[in-house]
């Protein structure tokens, strides 16, 4: 049985189309990433899967339970962490956790082993009101509350948005540990670099699926040659590379520009072209694409269609 089966889901809010016919499957026990910017439809999809929203069209099921008919069954086995911090700010850390445990008919001590690693970090502040916690601690508490009833499947809606790089890294380490316990995780994120931490990902853009696959396969499907080009003047470099006749796209990536071309380049040719434009410190290197390169490439193709 699949952890989630999604078939041709459509969803619109008034005029705005949030999901335009999405189909995919999530395997049991994997970390599945929904990757895309705001407006891609990630939150709508998660809300449909957690039985919070009706799809306009199409079906979805979680462990074989239909999200419309068997919503009660799903609500028993799903853990959910909404995008916005949504715990009771006027209750303490401990009170929040106890409350969520008891509405699922369990106790904190029963499943403490599951949340131990996370909860230990906030336990010194267990008497503090949740509203007075720092951002990172709130996030850990929210995850603890979503986990306390030992869900079979965990839905995380943008858990790392607005969170600094260090806390993000810690958060993903926690998710990896949960995967080992056998919990299926569906997580959404706008950060493309997090895709590589998932077993499989769905790349989403404006309610459409760009691709669903393992990160490695998505990278393998990349159909251009890619170069990392460096020079002293990054902004000028982008402009000049775009005027280069073999360029498909040129975008800044960190301190280099990723240049995609249809065919293999002779490095000297590019070197010469840039020298003529007056660049200094030129370096050209053939590189493997990342998920972000692939995403941008797929976006461009979708726009061309």
């Amino acid at each position: 049985m699949k952890a989630a089966e999604i078939h041709n889901i459509h969803k619109s809010y008034d005029e705005v189309k949030a999901l335009g016919g999405i189909s995919m499957q999530v395997e049991k026990g994997e970390i599945f990433g929904l990757i895309g910017p705001d407006g891609a439809g990630k939150t709508s999809l998660i809300r449909i899967l957690t039985t919070l929203l009706y799809p306009d069209q199409g079906q979805a099921s979680i462990f074989g339970m239909d999200t419309i008919r068997d919503f009660k069954g799903i609500r028993k086995i799903a853990g959910y962490m909404p995008g916005r911090f949504s715990l009771y700010q006027d209750l303490s850390v401990e009170e929040n956790l106890n409350f969520y445990a008891s509405i699922f008919g369990t106790t904190v001590s029963e499943n403490y082993h599951l949340i131990k690693d996370i909860y230990q970090q906030i336990e010194p502040f267990k008497k503090r009101l949740a509203g007075r916690l720092s951002g990172g601690m709130k996030q850990k508490l929210a995850l603890s509350c979503a986990l306390i009833h030992k869900p079979d499947i965990l839905f995380l809606d943008e858990p790392t948005t607005g969170v600094d790089a260090v806390s993000r890294k810690e958060f993903w380490e926690i998710l990896k540990n949960l995967e080992e316990v056998g919990i299926t995780i569906i997580v959404s994120t706008p950060y493309m670099d997090e895709a590589e931490l998932c077993d499989r990902v769905a790349l989403m853009q404006e309610g459409q699926l760009l691709d669903v696959d393992t990160p490695a396969n998505i990278i393998g499907k990349y159909d251009h040659e890619l170069y990392a080009v460096e020079s002293r003047e990054l902004h000028q470099l982008i402009k000049d590379l775009r005027s280069f006749d073999k360029t498909v796209s040129a975008f800044p990536f960190g301190d280099t520009v990723h240049l995609a071309t249809q065919e293999k380049l002779r490095r000297k040719e590019l070197q010469k072209f840039l020298e003529e434009k007056g660049h200094e410190g030129i370096a050209v290197q053939s590189i493997e694409p990342g998920i972000e390169d692939c995403f941008m490439n797929l976006m461009r193709k979708q726009n061309d269609e």
């Binding site: 948005t161 853009q205 982008i238």
Partner: peptide
């Protein structure tokens, strides 16, 4: 303050070009 949060990768880069121009 976090001007590109949640913006797609292409628009994010276009945004930075605006920043470069303003700087110039």
């Amino acid at each position: 303050d976090e001007p590109t949060s949640g913006v797609d990768p292409v628009t994010r880069r276009q945004f930075w070009e605006l920043i470069y121009e303003a700087s110039e």
